[in-house]
């Protein structure tokens, strides 16, 4: 222990860390000792979108502006590669080390992000432990059933369809589902007119939770509130995945995999039962 405390690597480990992005907030809250966290973004406390919201209470918030970040005199700033570039550049110019974390779309991205943040914090051991737990739980939740496999549309407000190479695509795949976006040749986030969804008739429509509570008149949610979708879902399944599981790629996606895998298995059993009935006729 004493030897470790004297090691130059640990001596150089950052003591006042600021995160200015919801997704780096998660990594920081997961991997750092609470007293070393100087500030997290204002979204970190929001249960709807932040998986680690419980840990973020009592930690000062920031709105991602260079000036307020400076007040915390950080020796490391965590930012998403998605964060406003001018802020990152400005902080670097002022001599503050900024670690940019890429967006996680695949399982490997999640693992790499955990590793790199853990290393930067000097907490490689914690990182390894978190990774081990994640790998174990993810493997346990994932299923890969033989055919028939359900086709799922990961469909959210503003007509956005999530492709396979997104975090939602990743958890749907882990639940053994086919992604409608693949069948349509779409990748990433695409705009899918409601008409096409109705025409394609996927077995599952997977939406967020907020869309349940959203004001009916808000135009962003018009696709999810459309009676034609309700009609489609009369004999299809709608699965709602909490928004915080879509927000960032992190170990929390295991929860999404579990929900989807359970729904998928139920669907398969029903399908198989129907097929047997047909055969008997």
């Amino acid at each position: 222990m004493l030897a470790a405390a004297l090691s130059p690597i640990l001596a150089a480990s950052p003591q006042r860390i600021v995160s200015i992005n919801l997704c780096t907030d998660q990594l920081l809250l997961m991997l750092a000792e609470p007293h070393k966290i100087a500030s997290v973004s204002y979204l970190a406390m929001n249960y709807a979108v932040s998986p680690a919201a419980a840990l973020a209470r009592r930690i000062p918030q920031n709105y991602g502006q260079a000036e307020e970040v400076l007040r915390f005199k950080p020796d490391l700033v965590l930012a998403s590669a998605f964060t406003v570039h001018s802020t990152n550049a400005l902080l670097r110019k002022l001599g503050i080390p900024v670690l940019e974390i890429p967006v996680a779309d695949e399982i490997e991205d999640i693992r790499n992000n955990i590793k790199s943040v853990a290393t930067a914090l000097g907490n490689s051991e914690t990182g390894a432990k978190v990774l081990e737990t994640f790998d174990r739980r993810f493997a346990k939740a994932s299923i890969s059933p033989p055919r028939p496999r359900a086709v799922a549309a990961l469909y959210r407000e503003n007509n956005i369809l999530y492709g396979s190479n997104t975090i939602a695509g990743t958890f749907a795949r882990a639940a053994g589902m086919e992604n409608l976006a693949d069948q349509l040749g779409l990748t990433g986030f695409s705009d899918l007119p409601l008409e096409i969804l109705i025409e394609q008739r996927p077995d599952f429509v997977i939406a967020g939770i907020r869309s349940l509570h959203a004001q009916r008149g808000l135009l962003a949610y018009r696709n999810l509130h459309h009676p034609a979708l309700a009609r489609l879902l009369e004999n299809r399944s709608l699965v709602r995945i909490p928004d915080r599981l879509w927000a960032c790629g992190g170990p929390e996606i295991v929860d999404a995999v579990r929900i989807l895998a359970a729904a998928h298995l139920k669907w398969r059993n029903q399908k198989i039962a129907e097929r047997d009935v047909d055969k008997q006729r």
Binding site: V49, N158, L219, A220, H225
Partner: peptide, 23 residues
């Protein structure tokens, strides 16, 4: 408290008829 506020704004300022229903 809506993350799609910016898009929502665009919807209201630049009208559209897409995906409107009998409601």
């Amino acid at each position: 408290p809506d993350p799609f506020a910016a898009m929502e704004m665009m919807f209201w300022m630049m009208g559209s008829l897409s995906d409107r229903s009998f409601e």
